[in-house]
Amino acid sequence: LVISVISRDEGGFKGPALLQNILESGLRFGEMDIFQRHESMAGNGEVLFSMANAVKPGVFGLDDIDHFTTRVVSFFLGLPGPRHPTQ
């Protein structure tokens, strides 16, 4: 299942604000240079879903996050998913 979120602002999602929202939502930077949301907000347990930059190259440039922007991010999960899919 993939859900893409497109910025209404033509300038896209700005790196610092995007990163703050991502981390506050419990996602953690990990494998393949994308973010994952685990069962625990601390980043432990099974991966519930992942979030990637939907614009090539598909990753987040944390080394230069102050200058990073993207118009689209995608949330995705494989089905069957976690033990409690409705959560």
Rank of each mutant, 00 (worst) to 15 (best):
Q36P: 04
V72M: 13
L48M: 13
R37D: 01
R28M: 15
Q20H: 05
M41Q: 04
L48Q: 14
E31H: 07
V47K: 12
T70L: 15
D63V: 10
S4Q: 07
Q87D: 14
S74T: 07
L62K: 04
S25F: 06
L23K: 03
G26P: 13
T69F: 00
M51E: 03
T69N: 01
E31F: 04
H67R: 12
V55S: 00
D33W: 01
L62C: 02
G58P: 02
A17V: 09
V73T: 03
R28W: 13
I22T: 14
E31A: 13
F49G: 13
G30V: 09
M51T: 09
R83K: 13
R28V: 15
L19F: 08
L18Q: 03
D9H: 08
A52N: 03
D63K: 14
F68S: 10
L19S: 02
S25H: 12
A17M: 11
R28H: 15
E46F: 13
F60Y: 00
N53W: 03
V2W: 04
I3D: 07
Q87E: 15
G58M: 05
E46L: 04
S7P: 03
E39M: 12
R8P: 02
P85N: 01
P80L: 07
G30I: 02
G12H: 04
I65Q: 09
G78V: 12
G61I: 04
P16Q: 10
I34A: 13
K14E: 06
G30E: 05
E31R: 08
H67P: 02
T69P: 00
S74Q: 07
P80W: 03
S7L: 03
P80D: 05
F13E: 08
D63I: 08
N21F: 07
A52E: 05
Q87Y: 15
E24W: 09
F35S: 09
P57F: 11
E31Q: 11
F13L: 10
S74W: 01
G61A: 06
R28C: 15
M41F: 11
G26K: 11
L77T: 08
I6P: 02
G81M: 00
F76L: 01
L27N: 04
L62D: 01
D63G: 14
G58R: 06
P85L: 10
M51H: 10
L62R: 11
P82G: 15
F29V: 02
T86K: 01
G26A: 10
L77H: 01
A52M: 08
S7F: 03
F13G: 05
I6L: 12
H67E: 11
I65M: 15
